[in-house]
Design a binder for these strands. Sequence first.
DNA 1: AAAAAAT
Length: 454
Amino acid sequence: MTFADLGLSDELLRAVAESGYTEPTPIQAQAIPPVLMNRDLIGIAQTGTGKTASFVLPMIDILAHGRSRARMPRSLILEPTRELAAQVAENFEKYGKYHKLSMALLIGGVNMSDQVAALEKGVDVLIATPGRLMDLFARGKILLSGCSILVIDEADRMLDMGFIPDIEEICTKLPPNRQTLLFSATMPPPIKKLSDRFLSNPKQIEVARPATANASIEQRLVETSARGKRETLRRLLRADDMRTAIIFSNRKTTVRELTDSLRRHGFQAGQIHGDMEQPERLKELDRFKNGEINILVASDVAARGLDIKGVSHVFNHDVPWHPDDYVHRIGRTGRGGATGKAFTLVTPDDAEAIEAIEKLTGQTIARLAKPEPAKAEPVEPEPAQPKPAEERPRRERAPRRGDRPPAGRGEKAKGATPRPEPRREIPAEPVDMNGWNGPIPSFLDYGFGTRGNS
DNA sequence: AAAAAAT
């Protein structure tokens, strides 16, 4: 099976070949022919399966003929997050290099005037997040009556985010004889209802959920304490095979604090979360993609769909609230047949959440057990550091968002690792690594993060 | 419980 067998045009085949792809993925092989024949489609698949190209490629060929008119886009793609929308736009640019299709990216957080100007000129492909699309529609900047193709991507995520009413409203503004493609990793009842209402005689295709079936991701749970998390994480980050990592955390504040902490420890870390300005979000993502930084600390805004090559590791600083998110998060590694490692820091409080994850994926995740510490202090033995003249009182509780680090002090002053600390901006890394400072071959016999509530 | 998305 080659791309040429799917009925795509020569120009498109050339662009695909130049992108380095030779063989369609299962979803591409199944989806492209019916989409080219203008059929409605339900694709049960996640990103990482080549899903995006499965609609981008045939859309380019379908739209190759015909012309757009002002404010009347010829096709519309809905995405749940701004980054995903931007990523789809990149795909159109990559594969559409031999076509002269016009495109507009309508996302929030950026200036509207460029988007309005593009719409005025007329676009073939509109890629949007629902909020900004509705906004521009309400301002009379868009007419959807000429829109002959609609793609609803990541429908289940849209559902989670409360976008379904918006999607329904948008659907009613498109011509009824349009072609509709709906992609979703799962098919909960509201999504089924949506597709029954807005798709006609859809061809349904399904590909295996990559993360559950993906044997190329090596998963481990790492037992630690709430206080030991950062130190545990730093040790994992220093493994020999660690190249590029995304670290997920459940809270935006934690993302910020953790990024600062890692930077203080000399790591090249950036961050992405929903409280950042959009230009900053895209800039950080770029810095990560081009290798300026090799660690990206992220909220779940980056959990789904982001396709970044060569992410060797995913770390869950926190166990995600929802088990689905675990699958999505670890799916940022092991992409395109590469191998990846996914480490999840677990504390005793996480037992239930882990159980839910294991139930969902149907697999037990190996634990890196926390052995009984022979000696209470696993790392950075106290005598190694000259004792400061006066010692700060140790905090009893874990750090919270309200905590302010004393000026000029490192993260350790915040109470993450309560111990006497050396006076310097960037605290030294532990010298004694308990013999563990490399790849993680056996996952069996090391102990760390044992400080604290054990 | 969190995060995401329009301002």
